[in-house]
Write a protein that binds this DNA or RNA. Sequence first.
DNA 1: GGACACATGTAACAAGTTACATGATTAA
DNA 2: TTAATCATGTAACTTGTTACATGTGTCC
Lengths: 175, 175
Amino acid sequence: MTSQDVILGLLMHHSLSGYDMKHKMETILSYFNNASFGTIYPTLSKMEKEELITKQSVIQEGRPNKNVYSITEKGREQFKTYMYSPVEDNEFKSDAMTRLFFGEFVEKDVIVGVLEEYLQRTKGHMERLSKLYVECQPEMSHSQEICIQIGINNSESQIRTLTQGIVRLKNLAEK
Amino acid sequence: MTSQDVILGLLMHHSLSGYDMKHKMETILSYFNNASFGTIYPTLSKMEKEELITKQSVIQEGRPNKNVYSITEKGREQFKTYMYSPVEDNEFKSDAMTRLFFGEFVEKDVIVGVLEEYLQRTKGHMERLSKLYVECQPEMSHSQEICIQIGINNSESQIRTLTQGIVRLKNLAEK
DNA sequence: GGACACATGTAACAAGTTACATGATTAA
DNA sequence: TTAATCATGTAACTTGTTACATGTGTCC
């Protein structure tokens, strides 16, 4: 799965500008994907050359002009090829968990701090997802609902585990 | 957090060869980290030049010789600097979830297939973690226990969500 | 005979990040 | 006036992956 596949997926519904795509990636796709402008714009240029998408320049008043991209028939085929290809493994990398793993080499307070920050971030993450779910549920597909439920339920589970972990570590420190 | 920080952490306890490190990353660190030989060996060379680690060649019989690396005082300081630095956000990328998100553009069976494979992989993942927990619990630190519990509990939660999702999608297909 | 574990290393390549460059409008 | 939103794009850099190259011993 590359950024190209995600862009093709986004264009299956509507035509979008690079800026719009970035916004979608930061909201509805953010919990299992990410891409910066430095990835999006060069990828769009490449895809246009390969005739997977076409560009239309839209002149706007009071705003910068924008390039709106649409998917071509060739692009739709490419997207199908992706959707039928073997599923790749998830990629996960956690700095917070790495610190927990090596926690024995620093003071307990530092680790409690890591846990508390991780908990706050997870709570924020879950709130954003829950809000998104409430807002977008009417227009969501069935598999999109499953997708966001995975995100919400995993966050909930993580909040529970972290909360318990903090209590246990703190008790240990007092004794 | 770079591979360097992880390598320093691994060397805080024992001296290790690059091959040993790869093994650790594939087992006890695998659920929040990963690195290939193509990353490990060049990083070790770089770290040796920077005097964060030292190399000792060990001649073995019936096996290839190996280079065993030990952390230096400078390396320990560098490791502490890492452990006290601001915690970076988790990185997560999921091909399976991307396909769920764009599931409306393919047949329901394809999505059920994605869900079932994702479920099987998650089950396998959880079994490996549970086994690891049972095997290593005696020598695990408190924060390491929290770390692996996060992994196990998140997997459990994901198994539940996926199982429910499969049932719901399948019922929908029958109607 | 074949696969796997042990063991190290490089080179080519892919992918993505960060920072820079530009610039108008709008709201606090 | 300061920040945010809208809007695109490039260049340098970092990081990591895959594949190749090499070779022995052990187990089935």
